[in-house]
Design a protein around this nucleic acid. Structure first.
Lengths: 213, 213
DNA sequence: GTCTATAAGTCGATAGAC
DNA sequence: GTCTATCGACTTATAGAC
């Protein structure tokens, strides 16, 4: 079960590694068929290599899948965390939050690989619970902490619990994406993106409007 | 690929159908392994029938899976819609909403099959998009409409957009379940259920506290 | 129970770099 | 010549379907 022939050092950053080519070829196969139904033959041909080469770079199917998800997680971690690095503490929070929400929804709309990653991680969360946890640790948790800190730094919002508010903000957007995009519900349960964002922002910033205290 | 031998009418509601036994046996196999990795052999032995019997009652693996998800959808549709049939318009909305939220989270906690169904539907939403859409149509949409109507009937909440508020309410809870339970994030990103519910209710009912207008 | 297809994973030979 | 990445062909097991 364990294959410990020396994998041709995949940590050589000089030439565009063949491991990268394999991962790039594996991505669409896994995302289209799911883990179990993705065959190593298909992945090999998609990557333009032979099957033994696959096994030269990755121990087995699981190892390849784990490496792929980890890479995607890394990419998206950097991507997500690079967006609202240090929101202007000057600009009004409703503007910052609206920018964040719109940016997230647009990013997911323009980059279907993100939706795919979400679907894969959820779908395979029983087979690969450690991958799901890695995703929580590397992406969701930093995002949530950042958002909580920002919300807590805006006392005029009068949010009683910024941690929960961050969950509500993120959860509403993720759930919107799940229904509209992943579950293909946009015709069955239509809801304009701007309407969703506006309603969400209004709810979160309603405390501000509370009289002139 | 298409099998049109007469299936012993599985639409006979008289005798506790053998189709029911097959579906009951198939459920844990599909939920544990996912669609692709669930084998008909395993399903047959789990259901206590022979493999030809499977194919006697269901056209093929796809047909069996679709029938299973449809049945689960039906069950949960009735279950979910039976809960807050006609919330007392007397009792204060924060109490009604708290009851709803707690009931939903407890129902999912006590009934892991619901989480499993959610995961299956999301995970197989590319392979079976029509199942995902059925789920939206039969469960999510009625739930959302009911909730929107209730929220709209409570003008003192001052919700500018009850439709979006219903999404936020549901989305926050679903996202909470996804992170804590499906992605196994309860240790990585802990958040007490009551704290989540309280924060959510507080945000939705904050408009009420708005001064004495 | 049987049949056929296809899956994951392996092996011996090859071919190019130094 | 040696070393090593590569590949076509193969084995074994197990899948779906009847």
């Amino acid at each position: 079960m364990v294959n410990r022939s020396t994998p041709p050092q995949s940590s050589n950053p000089e030439k565009p590694d063949k491991a990268q080519a394999i991962l790039a070829g594996a991505l669409p196969v896994f995302t289209k068929h799911g883990y179990a139904a993705a065959s190593m033959d298909r992945i090999a041909s998609a990557a333009g290599v032979s099957k033994p080469t696959l096994y030269n770079y990755f121990q087995d199917k699981q190892g390849l899948f784990i490496a792929l998800i980890h890479q995607l997680t890394q990419n998206n971690s950097q991507l997500i965390l690079s967006l609202p690095t240090e929101p202007d503490l000057q600009t009004p929070p409703e503007q910052v939050l609206r920018q964040m929400a719109t940016a997230v929804l647009e990013e997911f709309a323009n980059n279907p690989a993100l939706l795919t990653l979400m679907r894969l991680i959820i779908g395979e969360s029983e087979r690969f619970p450690e991958l799901a946890q890695t995703h929580v640790r590397e992406i969701i948790k930093p995002l949530m902490e950042r958002l909580s800190l920002y919300l807590a730094s805006q006392p005029q919002l009068k949010l009683s619990d910024p941690v929960v508010a961050a969950r509500i903000f993120t959860g509403s957007l993720v759930h919107y994406l799940i229904i509209q995009n992943i579950l293909h519900g946009s015709e069955i349960l239509p809801l304009e993106r701007d309407r969703m964002v506006n309603g969400l922002i209004q709810l979160l910033t309603a405390g501000e409007a509370e009289g002139a205290v």
